[in-house]
Design a protein around this nucleic acid. Structure first.
Lengths: 230, 230, 230, 230
DNA sequence: GATGAATGAGGATTCATTCAT
DNA sequence: AATGAATGAATCCTCATTCAT
């Protein structure tokens, strides 16, 4: 369980330190549930698993969340709230090119700090989004739309035709989400930990290179000649 | 990779008609199970679901498969056998550039015909591959290694550094797998069916353009000037 | 558990002997459940109680009834079906006076053979009929209406005013139902078993005397002089 | 019968105002619990139900009653104390005939003011009296005995044989208790509220007529000729 | 090969109760 | 006096599996 930065605790209120003991327990439950849901999905995660991970008995969970469903929803809300905020800001920025360039790094940093989120969202995707929080449902469509717009308004030497832009966005999304999703299996098979700092940095370089190649800067001559990535 | 018996080709194809009625029932069970496992994952799929989908009672499933686990394994074996064969062939071909160019189309055609496979494999990926058939386990590592080699030996105007090549392969893998995985949710949210023929064709064009941009042909001058994608 | 007369088994079909073993088990479950529901009510009866009484494990109950609710409904259906039929016939008879006179005896005989039914119906009454089978709901209203009509059309020396007739019917209903309901407590407190043959017979005489007094025969002179009850 | 402290009369009456706030809360709990126990029985009533009805949290109930059982006992004690007192007085009066005549009205008035009591007692009856407060247990037997004696010593034109007298008492008891018990269901089915003032008054007339018919005044000639019931 | 019946294990949830605050 | 938190026991129900038919 990665340490959760303070700002994520800042959601429920302006005061950052949880005052009551109950809030601490609820946060611990959310931590454990997030990890387990990310690893095993909703159906594969048992309240016993969660309770064991927190060091509580099962009925105690019900003192903090009224049902397994509600716990799952709370995990998604807490996890995705800050991410969606950040993505929203970046996508909304008018200066397309720097935005596109930064997006990769920002998203990588963000998800590296919350590596469970991509797994959570992929579980949802596989489930057809049937349990998708209204929050996420409401967000996904517009987010992709804004990303499409960003791609289309980015000045590039070789613009994307409108019918391919959405698929391009989808592709880049999958590159990022897939990277974090496959990390445990990749580590298991190859011994390399994709979540380690150097690998994260490499993947960030990859993204930059991909963006450079796929959205070439119109001002640069040909494929960036002298510039080496990194 | 274990030799794949011909019978696996007998599924929907015109090939040898199954002799016994039992085999036909087993195939129907596999069909139903494949769809359900792909949609809901292993933990989320119930033998009752499978039996209902086939029109049998649960105990009858045990006449064909000794356990839920075995049924799941059989689904993976039957589903991935032909795919792995095909991929293996392509990846093993010495002529790197045409192979790289063709790979996208071949894989798209293949997965478009078996759209459950990406979902199945993603469920496995999320589960950390713990239930991954030995078959798949044995295949995945080498496959990526061969793909890495393919990328590295492909003559290109801008070669990939060895530390990025594997990540590049991974990225392309996620682009393809993610496309099929998100199809149901995408359809739900946007109304567009990514599994439809036109969309599949668009995605194929996207892949070709991505490969062109990321592995630029050394013989071509600059970014392919006169050539417009489709 | 009183022996169930064969005619009640005749409901589900014309053949009286249950062919399959499952039907026997289902009947045993119904027997046990009927006794327990009658004694403890719905909320106070546990599936464990039922299973223990039958000698099964709890999950086996679900092979015969899909839920506790359905089991309860089945108990009511099986128990009240024949009773309602019989009552319906009697109440529908045109010859009011003999019908009224016989009703007491018939009902007493009927309920003496099924002493759980009054308790079941009282549990339902107390619950406000919220779980009342549609069957019973549909029956209760008309039954009382027909009973009212019977009272009003019975020739008597002192007719009941229309506003009291329904209450009179209700009263007689409670006399009968209450008698069987209180039997266990009465036995516990006084040692007398109201369900014993002699007591049943006494109560039958009581009912006859009450009917005679409350619906006096217009042809008889005054309070029946020479006639002694019994 | 244990002496009843005056405070039990303090409930809804204008009598001595409860001094401490705790007593007022306890009374509110008793009110809510009485209604719920009467409606759903002991097993069907949850401490959460009670707490919700009072507007407290469950643990607060334990500040006033040491257990669910004790709360139930307190409800019975408080509810039945005054009733038993009153019945005791009436039954103990030596002048049999007026007592018998008055009994109906007094009981009806009493129960109309406390319509939950019949339901509570019926729940107890159905449970076989296993939870019956010692108070009630100690009272029921003697009460019926005194009622039997009352019936037997009432001068009437047609005395009840000793073997029928107890059943007659039982019957009248059920007429009264049943009336209040069925009220909610009756209202649900027919729209008529048996607890309304006019219906209560009708039922009182019914009781008087039944008593007149079943215990005919020896001084009156035949069935009371000129007198019409109200 | 298909199925009705039975069941051990477990899953989510509720309930009455306790205790520290 | 009120309550948030914790929990053992139990509730209804599901699941994968077995077995006799």
């Amino acid at each position: 369980m990665p340490p959760r930065p303070l700002r994520s605790a800042a959601r429920p209120g302006p005061a950052s330190a949880p005052r009551r003991r109950g809030e601490i327990t609820a946060a611990r439950i959310l931590d454990a549930a997030e990890a387990l849901f990310a690893e095993r999905g909703y159906a594969g995660t048992t309240l016993r698993d969660v309770a064991d991970a927190v060091g509580l008995r099962i009925p105690s969970l019900y003192n903090h969340f009224p049902s397994k469903d509600a716990l799952y929803a709370a995990v998604l809300e807490r996890g995705f709230g800050p991410v969606l905020d950040l993505l929203g800001e970046t996508l909304a920025r008018p200066d397309a090119r720097p935005a596109g360039h930064e997006l990769g790094e920002r998203v990588m940093r963000l998800l590296a700090a919350h590596p469970t989120l991509p797994r959570l969202i992929l579980h949802e995707t596989l489930a057809g989004g049937q349990r998708l929080t209204p929050m996420l449902r409401a967000w996904v469509g517009p987010a992709f739309a804004r990303a499409d717009a960003l791609v289309e308004r980015t000045p590039t030497a070789r613009p994307w035709p409108p019918d391919l832009a959405p698929l391009f966005v989808l592709a880049m999304y999958h590159v990022v989400v897939g990277y974090f999703t496959i990390a445990p299996l990749y580590r298991d098979l190859s011994g390399v930990d994709l979540l380690s700092e150097p690998m994260i940095e490499r993947q960030t370089r990859l993204l930059r290179r991909m963006v450079d190649a796929l959205l070439p800067d119109p001002d640069a001559a040909g494929p960036p000649p002298g510039r080496r990535d990194t």
